[in-house]
Design a protein around this nucleic acid. Structure first.
Length: 117
RNA sequence: CGAAGGGGAGCAGAUGGUCGCUCCUCCUGAUAUCACGCGAAGCGGGAAAUGAGGAGGAGAGGAAAGUCCGAGCUCCAAAGGGCAGGGUGGUCCGUAACACGGACUGCCCCUGUGAAGUAGGCGCAGCCGCCACUUCACGGGGGUAAGGAAAGUGCCACAGAAAACAUACCGCCCUGUGGAGUAGGCGUAGCCGCCACUCCACAGGGUAAGGGUGAAAAGGCGAGGCAAGGGCUCACCAGUACCCUGAGCGAUUGGGGUAGCUAGGUAAACCCCACCCGGAGCAAGACCAAAUAGGUUCCGCUUCCUCCCUGUGGAGUGGCGGCUACGCCUACUCCACAGGGGAGAUAAGAAAAGCCCAUUCAAAUUUGUCCCGAGGCAAUAGCAUCGGGACAAAGGCGGGACGGGUGAGGUCGCUUGAGACCCUGAGCAAUCAGGGCCCUAGAUAAAUGGCCAUCCUCCCGAUUCCCACUGAAAAGCGGGAUCGGGAUGACAGAACUCGGCUUAUGGUCCCCUUCGAAAA
RNA sequence: UGGGGGAUCGUUCAAUGGUAGGACAACGGACUCUGACUCCGUGAAUCGAGGUUCAACUCCUCGUCCCCCAG
């Protein structure tokens, strides 16, 4: 019973797991390590907490607001389901590149899995 | 029934499970009106800097979009007038308002029917028939920024004679001069001269009928008239203005008459007329917190008058005491000084933004130096007082420039509103009125998503199926059914809120027009 | 989110409503032994769709894209 509760809660994604302050964005993007794939750029830096934090950057030149919201939802969904497979505690910023054109969650999930894990 | 075009209405895949997100309400616990944490304000209910677990409810759109209009709301002290600037433009109505909507009118385009005409085409010997074109009448559909071009200015490239006070290039006509010709006439024997006619050249004039061009050429056509012509005159037609009259709330329109005979286009060129508009926008604005230097510098202004109250002094009147001088006062009036208060004038400027005006607000104190005047001490000097003036400094008020701090901090604004749905009534309609019922997103690195199953829609392929057509058959083609695979399904994401417009876009249904097919 | 401005050859700038013009670049030729420089010539554009007008880069409306400013 207690196990079920903790597993159930562990797939949540709350406000404290998000990076919202501009100085945090600046710090991670300036000091963190950088990896790139075809459609994403990943900035990652170790933090003092015991959990991961996620920030998403989608520029306006990527597409219309519907597409930008969809990309953010896909990234959040992937982070929610896969954050336990990342060891340690990191601040993660994902930036979407310009030519990105995902329409399905599965396409994004494959590329994110290759990039992060 | 199908296809195409136009218009209108409504929907925005459905159901279930599961993992999540945002907001709200509630329950229990360690009295959650507490403890703790984040620097603070304020906030935080669980992997964190931190105490825990549940239950329930709600959660993107017809365009949320573009920001093209109009409003609400907030601030600019109040939101007034004029100019400038901007906008609108048929009429009436609707609306909180509009560049919106409805109805009607005018104009333009498309189309159908009917009539008339034609020197057009085809058939026919012909009459005539069919087609085509033009005009008119009636009907249907669509569009329309639709005031004024006889208020003024500007422009109208090229071409053309001329592009707007009409002009005179060609042409036509008249007159004059000169030349040439003639089988003409007169004089003469003839040469020759004059007259007449024709042609040419030049000069002067008349003329808009005709003329290549152009987007556009100064009403059309016929007759008269004329030297030639011309609305020069007349008949008909078209157009304009005015008058009378019928219809309509009105735009407008039917009929009649008169006039001048004509006025080109462009106002989405300037402009004129009528009407409307103060500006900025929720990053508006209010509060709280943190931090810093309530900093530097420049410029302008800082002026007068009057009223009331209190106090002091003086004068007068009155009362009392007193024999006169005089003394006192609880009274009143006037003058001077001091303090306080209010009102008015003026005023740097501010509200104010593009400018001006009205209106409102607005510091207006102190000290020092110099000059002048008055009288006092004094006596060529000088000293202090008072009044006036000038200058300076400090303070105050207002404005400009530069700088310092914080670092995208929090709460409210923030969703009950010209609100949605249903019924009834008024109206052709847009819309309005009454009644009932309901509360329906409030995020802020920004919430609606992922997965699974079934059904619906679309696409592709297959067939042992069925139906219709062609064919003698084999077979071909179309539709339906089943199975498998795919599209996971158009445009697209609230950001203060409404009313419209525009743009993007998937199906469904209804209406109108045209075409095709079948049946009667 | 709100408020402003703009779009012209490949690039950067012009153009009273009346033939879209330079400069750089590109290509071809001349000059040169060759290249550079210079000279001559050529091609190449009004963001898209409607409307006003005889005529639109210009005026008006709608759309697309880009830039700037606001705490």
């Amino acid at each position: 019973m207690k196990m079920g509760i903790t597993v159930k809660g562990s797939f949540r994604f709350t406000k404290k797991e998000r990076i919202t302050q501009p100085q945090d964005f600046r710090r991670v993007m300036k000091l963190g390590r950088r990896h790139a794939s075809r459609d994403f750029i990943l900035f990652i830096q170790k933090n003092e907490n015991t959990f991961h934090r996620l920030g998403i950057v989608v520029k306006k030149e990527i597409g219309p607001a519907t597409f930008r919201n969809r990309m953010k939802r896909y990234i959040r969904e992937f982070f929610r389901l896969h954050k336990h497979q990342i060891k340690g505690s990191y601040d993660i910023i994902l930036m979407v590149k310009k030519g990105c054109s995902f329409n399905r969650y599965q396409e994004a999930e494959g590329e994110l899995r290759r990039l992060i894990l």
